[in-house]
Nucleic acid binder design. Structure first.
Lengths: 358, 358
DNA sequence: TTGTAAGCGTTATCAG
DNA sequence: CTGATAACGCTTACAA
């Protein structure tokens, strides 16, 4: 009877070779699918040995020798944002389809974490990285690029770095949303966005908003909301809403909604913050009183009846991996940019026919 | 001028040794903090060489030699569930504090994925695994345990497997919630849960619900809701609600809420599904008409004014890593179980004073 | 068809 | 204090 050793070392290729009464090379060949060169008889012995020893090739050793470990880094700024999780799902699916193992790193909105993870990734010799940057300085990413490790950016670009990037077609999405609002009769739109100067996607959305508003000849302004300290922004919103209401001629109670003003949140987290505030201020039926639209189709959007622009998150993730894969396969081409279109999901909050009195 | 090689291989320890004009051993010593045995002079040369070559030790090679790579696997059943993301944050924080690198695997609710990832983890020779099992057969996990790789279960236990496990104190949480409902005047509670026979946490919650209801002498029943096909369950709920309403004596319109019946969702996803249905059926002010409570404090809970029991997710994650760490440090003790208490977050939906007419 | 031997980048052992 | 040298588990010429 064998005493249970405290750590019954996993079988190695050598063990298998011995068990099968052959050399390591043949085992290796078997593992790598070079079946044609193995006599059926040997093959069977190997098979048996592997099963018997429950052998699993050590990826680390493999990678060390081969020079590639099939690991790709996926750096995510904030998993708390459902957007990221959805992108991640696409990334995972694509990775598996192509035989990569995503090494998922979650910066949790901490810039140090981000740096630290990036270092770690190089330490593990990932073959490529997909980055949803928080605020990496270009140099950090540059390190990868210089080392010949392809980088694909998701959702945002990084100043001074030219690489493949995939994300939402922000101008298109914002235009889609804004046009919808105007068509529905809102001709004064408040665009609410987090501090945007340092984050490309926010910057682009804000600019697109102003452009679209101008093109449509509507009124519009931007409010900067910081999630950490939203009070000032919320006050500004209230003020705007209040002013609009005051200027509107008295109406029947049912029609008290400030009809011409709509709120447009630049992303899901902002939308939630604003919705919470509106609910607090206007009560449970806030949706009837103020129109809210948002980029990012949050899970609660349906519940709140909020109109949104849904991002093609899954595809974004898949596309990112595809770009990476192509580079890893040796593709030499200038940096590409893949901008996928958003989809308008119209709900009660902005639909003309939902509030009485037109 | 140096031509940019297509893949400027990363510097290895040998390169550094050459650059510093010394042997690999010294470099290794330097890397492992055995500074005391290095002459200040040599130390400086090494430092310089490392910086100059931007050297990063290869973790794979390290792991290969050392027999441990500081990798711990984290298998998550469903990242789409915010619960998982929160636990993950705790895990990450703790891992970094202890110098581990979490290898995050997302099964995306697919049982094959789960199996596949588990295999992969053993292939990468992770030192331990934290598992939020979807439905692993015990054998798979057994593989780890037998190989001397510690396993910590999160949120649910796996039949036939005895290991450390950490999660919510389900009986306590359910009792807390149920008692609250009864105290608020609801004496007929509908517990809504996904098919629970195969998932320990659901099973425990359901049992605890029945126990508590019995102990309190209230009425209560269980409805099984499948997220994939919720219609039957929702119909059952409607029926129950309808019956209660019919049996109640006619009241003023304002008091039409079926006062004595409350809905209790076993987790966040179920709560969302139910809320969506209620909204569809009762309109935007569904919260005024039917009481909904849930385990898991979803991000939209505040928005919907839904009472919840918040899970100590972050701590669950941290605790899991701690357990793992202790095992990795060689702790030999019987399997432990850490059940953390939930916290009641009372909101309008179940508060007596929020609906008119008491 | 099969096996031998030389590494991959580190660390550990053992002499200087 | 410092540095050869032999592994770690695997792949890959190169032989046989």
């Amino acid at each position: 009877m064998k005493l249970h050793a405290s750590a019954p070392r996993r079988a190695t290729i050598t063990d298998v070779a011995r068990e099968a009464g052959t050399g390591k090379t043949s085992i290796s060949r078997y593992l790598n699918g070079e079946l044609s060169v193995l006599s059926p008889e040997l093959r069977e012995r190997i098979e048996a040995a592997i099963v018997k020893l429950d052998y699993r090739p050590n990826q680390m050793a493999r990678g060390l020798k081969r020079g590639r470990n099939r690991l790709v880094g996926m750096l995510i700024a904030d998993l708390t944002n459902p957007y990221s999780v959805e992108v991640l799902q696409g990334v995972e699916a694509a990775c598996h389809a192509l035989g990569y193992m995503p090494l998922i790193c979650h910066a949790a909105n901490e810039i140090d974490m981000e740096r630290r993870y990036l270092q770690l990734l190089t330490t593990y010799r990932v073959e490529g990285v997909i980055v949803n940057a928080l605020g990496v300085k270009e140099e950090l990413l540059q390190t990868f690029a210089q080392g010949g490790v392809p980088v694909v950016l998701v959702d945002r670009s990084v100043e001074g770095l030219v690489t493949d990037m995939v994300g939402l077609d922000n101008p298109g999405a914002v235009a889609l949303a804004t046009r919808h609002l105007v068509e529905q009769g809102f001709d004064d739109v408040l665009f609410i966005v987090q501090p945007f100067t340092r984050v490309s996607s926010r910057r682009v959305r804000e600019a697109a908003f102003r452009d679209t508003i101008a093109a449509l000849g509507a009124r519009g302004s931007t409010v900067v909301l910081e999630l950490g300290d939203a009070a000032p922004a919320l006050a500004a919103i209230d003020a705007h809403l209040g002013a609009a209401q005051a200027s509107a001629p008295a109406m029947a109670r049912e029609e008290s909604r400030t009809k011409r003003v709509a709120l447009f949140a630049a992303n899901g987290p902002v939308a939630l913050r604003v919705a919470l505030h509106l609910k607090e201020r206007y009560g449970a039926d806030w949706q009837q009183r103020v129109a809210l639209m948002s980029i990012d189709d949050s899970e609660w959007a349906e519940l709140a009846g909020m109109t949104t622009v849904r991002q093609p998150t899954y595809d974004i993730g898949r596309r990112a991996v595809q770009f990476l894969h192509e580079r890893l396969e040796g593709a030499r081409m200038p940096a590409r940019e893949c901008l996928l279109p958003g989809e308008l999901v119209a709900r009660a909050s902005t639909r003309r026919d939902t509030y009485k009195g037109n």
